[in-house]
Amino acid sequence: MADLVLIFIGALLVNNVVLARFLGICPFLGVSRKVETALGMGMAVVFVMTVASVVSWYVQYFVLSPFGLEYLQTIAFILVIAALVQLVEMVIQKVSPVLYQSLGIFLPLITTNCAVLGVAVIAIQKDYSFVETITFSLGSAAGFTLAMVLFAGLRERVDLGPVPESFRGTAIALVTGGLLSLAFMGFAGMVKG
């Protein structure tokens, strides 16, 4: 149990998928103008990342390993994750239009997100068991959401200030993101992971 907690905390803070591993920078910059949308995106990632890790764990240990095809890991994972997300999107759109409005529009954005793939691959590399994989992906996704919401909050504040002309837009966003990343370096060494 203690192991699982450590994995979760490690993925959430110490090795934050965005701010320490620098995966998933695209939505981190793209969908972080407002806290609301950042939270929606984060929730979508929590869902997709967990499901993707579970499925890719099965693919790895029940399809690729038995046939000795570990070298096909990347392409197989992408195939499976993309198909899965598309499927889920269709189902949500039909079953719950309300949920689709708030969550679904982000789903196509993350079908081939590097953070999703990265978490699936890292879980395999670390030889995590099934339960550990779920914990790890949940922690990573929560870390992603945390980073997104913090960053969106900062950007909302920065938008109110008189930013110099040359720093407007992406420039100040990257500076802000860098500072946020520096802040997360403070967690380094807290958990071995």
Binding site: L72, V80, A83, L87
Partner: peptide, 27 residues
């Protein structure tokens, strides 16, 4: 050969699932 077969089968399964879903859950 097994690599091509495995990926091919996986792709085919995914395609079938998506095709089925597209009809079943069309909006």
């Amino acid at each position: 050969f097994s690599a091509i077969l495995t990926l091919g089968v996986m792709g085919l399964l995914a395609a079938l699932a998506l095709g089925f879903a597209a009809r079943k859950f069309a909006v």
